[in-house]
């Protein structure tokens, strides 16, 4: 097991590569999901706040 983590002496290079990829891809994914959730929550709020517009919006969506 420890030889696996040692990566033949190249542990730093191999694990930094995988770590950097995880950090960047994970970061983009989490940030994008958070933004999507925030945007849809804000949209629901506004729809509730302006109910008279709601019907027209939905009619437009269905068209």
């Amino acid at each position: 097991m420890s030889s696996f983590f040692a990566m033949g002496g190249y542990a730093f290079y191999v694990w930094s590569s995988y770590g950097a990829a995880l950090l960047i891809l994970g970061g983009i994914a989490i940030f994008s999901m958070a933004r999507a959730r925030q945007a849809s929550r804000r949209l629901e709020e506004l729809k509730r706040a302006a109910p008279h517009r709601r019907r027209r919006e939905e009619a437009a969506d269905g068209a």
Binding site: A29, S32, A39, S40, L43, L46, K47, A49, A50, E57
Partner: peptide, 24 residues
């Protein structure tokens, strides 16, 4: 694909948020 679709969703939601905010 997964991240792109989520990002597109939030862009579309934000566009409607802007429209609604302007209307309000």
């Amino acid at each position: 694909v997964s991240v792109l679709l989520r990002r597109m969703r939030s862009e579309l939601d934000l566009a409607r948020v802007r429209a609604l905010e302007d209307a309000i």
